[in-house]
Design a binder for these strands. Structure first.
Lengths: 314, 314
DNA sequence: AAAAACATGACAACTACTGGCATGATTAAA
DNA sequence: TTTAATCATGCCAGTAGTTGTCATGTTTTT
């Protein structure tokens, strides 16, 4: 077997152990101890952060976390990784900020000058525009870890009614519109609630929980279920069609007629009404709501509120 | 010099050329032709997609695009790359979809079993929740390329008033809320307009343009300028404060008083009024607008429209 | 037919690697 | 204090791998 291949095998072997002796490696690969010492010297020269403890019970320890075998990326693949990293730029806090930085550096430094320029250029021609968030989310990584470890949590949480304490089991963590959210099972209320991670003031990890909860994906799909189905029937002008087509939750529901106008006639959840009412408020004449009456009532009530707040006096 | 190092040098040398002969490599590195043939066999065995053309004017050609030297990633760095890729999952179209897939595959296949499980697990505990977009953006990559190449474009565009033809110079491309946008200088109107890339029906590349236009970053910051400054003064209840704090464009403007209520008193651009009016419509009693009168007028007008559309008849 | 290129084999000279042995240093346990 | 376990390093001879040269083929273009 070639030396390069053997070195690689040893690299992978040792980066899985936190401590090992030269004898162990010699036995594992049927080579002499002398050669193992020489190999370790080579790996060390190649930049592997390995150090030795002298004396009885001594041995070698690799400092970095596990390494992958060397990977040959094409330039285009490297660019795509930078591209992906760029999409994360606007998150104020990320669970892997330090790793992203070190991976970026490794990649960037092995690019040739021309490719570096290409990456720089790309970053000035493409962007992921999102509102810059000022809100800090210091506990993000901690909370994610707890979720992965399947542990329960006691948290201090800043809710509508002030600071409260909760005993919960996190389901997972997700980002939406620049903010991080955590659905979690609340043991007091015996149901899953949604928390904003930036509003968690402090956490105390507690016991591991063997119970099986829904996972994040299941939870997402359950939120799409229509617990209180209700018929939404709206007539749309051409402009109404245009705007609804740009609305993530409605775009699939819009039916376009030959003359360019259209309509929505679909079953949605009653809970969504509050969420979609601002859209129809904005659309005004461009959307004629036929059903449900509840939506019309919401719009009319809010319109009345507005008019009573700002009486005609000019 | 060790064989491994020499092979690497040759790998980098040949992956920059589209065609080369063994003699060229032999001269470059002062080694015999026979050795070059042997090296190329080795590289080929190692998976480099290289093929030879026989006969006079023959030579070697490397199929893949340029390669980077092998990179040693730690497991954590690999995980962070997967994490970044995951944040892109919800974009229906991306300029680097194929590269992202191949990079993912390379990384995933070199993970050890345990790490694979870790990545899989991560993906079930963390998500970037965004509306799934059904809209196709087939011309995305093409448009991005034109922007990078500094060329002008003729496009067919589907606008409010039907299909139009435009002669433009793209500034760049950006994603927002799942859709791709392209600010571009319109030669007819002599100013920068914003286009939706999915609404571009076809493009014809035209001449390169040596003129200097603003770049994407400059354009972004110019859109923040207040061309028609206007004073926004609003009193907020506790709940009003809470909701405005979650609103990307307003969160920095909210001033919180001791009792938990607050206010906004700031200069904004008149053009933003239409954008923020739905928020104040939603807030209702929780936000008392003091200034500008225009905002109150918009709200009142829309309220009246709503009431006239849905007259009280029950 | 000649020239330019890849493809492959044989072999001797050269280089690098390996294992064994020796020696030394350091540390923990007996 | 001694002993055993461990890393660190040097030397050397035997082995394994690499290189250059030469030879022979093949394919393609001029």
């Amino acid at each position: 077997m070639s030396k390069a291949k053997r070195l690689l095998d040893i690299l992978l072997f040792v980066s899985t152990k936190k401590k090992f002796t030269a004898q162990e490696v010699a036995d594992e690969f049927n080579i002499s101890i002398r050669t193992v010492h020489r190999y370790i010297l080579d790996l060390s020269d190649m930049g592997l952060p390995i150090y030795a403890e002298q004396g009885r019970n001594g041995g070698y320890t690799v400092l970095s976390s596990r390494l992958l075998p060397p990977i040959l990326f094409t330039e285009d693949e490297a660019v795509s990784i930078f591209f992906a990293f760029q999409s994360l730029h606007y998150y104020r806090d990320l669970p892997f900020n330090t790793e992203i930085k070190s991976a970026s550096q490794k990649l960037y430094s092995s690019l040739q000058e021309e490719a570096k320029r290409k990456v720089d250029k790309l970053q000035s021609y493409i962007a992921f525009w999102n509102p810059k968030r000022a809100i800090e989310t210091p506990l993000l990584k901690a909370v994610l870890e707890v979720a992965i470890e399947n542990k329960n949590l006691h948290i201090h949480y800043e809710s509508k009614s002030g600071t409260t304490t909760k005993h919960i089991h996190p389901i997972g963590v997700y980002a939406h519109d620049g903010l991080w959210y955590m659905p979690a099972f609340d043991f007091t209320k015996q149901k899953i609630l949604l928390f904003r991670v930036d509003r968690i003031i402090s956490i105390i990890k507690s016991e591991e929980n063997k119970e099986v909860f829904v996972n994040l994906k299941e939870w997402f799909s359950s939120t799409y279920e229509h617990k209180q189905p209700i018929r939404l029937h709206v007539r749309l002008s051409r402009e109404g069609v245009r705007q609804c087509k740009s609305e993530p939750n409605l775009e699939d529901l819009v039916v376009i007629k030959e003359d360019g106008t259209g309509f929505i006639d679909s079953i949605i959840d009653k809970g969504e009404l509050n969420f979609i009412s601002p859209l129809f408020y904005r659309l005004g004449m461009h959307a004629q709501i036929v059903e449900p009456k509840e939506l019309v009532d919401i719009l009319r009530q809010q319109a009345k509120d507005i008019l009573s707040m700002y009486p005609e006096n000019d």
